[in-house]
Design a protein around this nucleic acid. Structure first.
Lengths: 111, 111
DNA sequence: ACTTTATACTTTGTATTACAAGGTATATTG
DNA sequence: CAATATACCTTGTAATACAAAGTATAAAGT
């Protein structure tokens, strides 16, 4: 029981991560900030949560990484992620499922 | 990874169960059918999933049960569940969280 | 009358996964 | 120069939908 939000977030996090990478390549920490910002702080992901998900997505060939040094003074490279073709298909699939289930929930919730 | 739908359903199932019991007292099997029917079969719950959730909700004092024999010929009584005051409050709370997070996801998903 | 399917409830074991909590190291801000 | 934010990583834990098994009655089909 405990935390409903925590449970509810399961599953949808992957969807949002793939969506952000669908838009453009990004490094992990940036994804956390983007999700937080774009959801008006309604969805917050901890870094200890995000990185394992990224590794999982990578194992499944949905994303792949490369190190890149930005040309803005920062010397340390950041680990960027890029979505693959399989990842795009996976995203479309998940989006379809999400919309379907959400439609179902909506119908139940409205008296 | 495996099944996205399965993961996504976590959390929202409790919400839908409380919603149905908010409307009227019901026995377990009826809840399964209601959820399936009202969501146009987009959300299907297995009985092995529902009953443990009902027991959990009961442990948390959100619902309570009573055996009742319907007066329609069926001799065997069915185990009905009734939502408590605490359950109603819990439902309102969960609904608020659900709507908030859903709003956040929507914002992320629309380019 | 008999067989099959649906109803109704229960329990045990398993896989999944967000998070807490710890770590390391660099960059930025006051 | 101290404090905070950024950026990445790892281990252990709690929570939970489901599969798969069971029991028993009711309804539907032939």
């Amino acid at each position: 029981m405990q935390n409903f939000k925590k449970q509810f977030k399961k599953g949808v996090i992957e969807l949002t991560i793939l969506k952000l990478l669908y838009e453009k390549d990004q490094y992990g920490y940036s994804i956390i900030q983007q999700i937080s910002k774009r959801s008006d702080n309604h969805i917050e992901i901890k870094d200890g949560t995000l990185y394992p998900i990224l590794y999982r997505l990578e194992d499944n060939k949905f994303i792949e990484n490369y190190w890149k040094t930005d040309n803005n003074g920062r010397s340390k490279p950041r680990k960027y992620y890029r979505i693959t073709i399989e990842g795009r298909l996976r995203y479309e699939e998940m989006l379809k499922d999400y919309l379907e289930i959400n439609e179902g929930i909506k119908k139940i919730l409205k008296s």
